[in-house]
């Protein structure tokens, strides 16, 4: 994963120039990926209308400064609100949840509960089978799989651009 340091320019994806401190490149890249996943996913209006903000949640995970790059950016005409959450109830209020790589019973339960809701589940743990998008490390690059099998049960519409770039599409 440390080889990802070789991709320093990723930071430039974001127009926010006022990053105060250096973020770990892996988190920065993942934050950029999360932003793009959100950009290329369409939520049904009923779900989006629930809040004036776009809730991007990190379940038991803290991206630190990297997550700050996402704050106050506009996503689907709403301001992004980055939250660190610890419970399934909190997760249900999010549009997008990132679940950390480490796995235990809570994460699995969370995924089980949210997999058919309007929450886009992104993880970097390939063992969590019923997440919607899985970020993987391949050589020096990050790639991702899209799980259409579970996305079908939601009202989430993933752009063909995203499917085209996916390493693997699970159906």
């Amino acid at each position: 994963m440390k080889k990802l340091i070789l991709i320093p320019f990723i930071v430039a994806i974001f127009t926010i120039q006022n990053i105060q401190a250096k973020a770990l490149p892996e988190y920065t890249i993942k934050a950029a990926y999360l932003y793009n996943f959100a950009l290329l996913t369409q939520w049904s209006s009923s779900n989006e209308n629930q809040s004036d903000e776009f809730n991007l949640c990190f379940y038991k995970e803290d991206f630190g400064i990297a997550s700050d790059t996402l704050k106050n950016k506009i996503m689907h005409e709403k301001k992004i609100k980055v939250s660190n959450i610890n419970s399934i109830e909190e997760a249900q209020k999010c549009q997008m949840v990132f679940i950390r790589k480490e796995e235990n019973i809570q994460e699995l339960q969370l995924v089980q509960t949210l997999s058919q809701s309007q929450v886009l589940i992104v993880t970097d743990n390939e063992k969590i089978e019923n997440s919607h998008i899985t970020i993987l490390s391949e050589n020096t690059k990050l790639v991702f799989n899209v799980n259409l099998k579970y996305l079908k049960h939601t009202n989430l519409a993933v752009s063909s651009h995203l499917l085209k770039l996916a390493k693997k599409i699970i159906q």
């Binding site: 990723i10 994806i13 990926y33 950009l39 651009h161 770039l165």
Partner: peptide, 12 residues
């Protein structure tokens, strides 16, 4: 190429 550029996917 928009998506590939956004994800910095050189091969795509």
């Amino acid at each position: 190429t928009a998506a590939a550029v956004a994800f910095h996917d050189e091969s795509a």
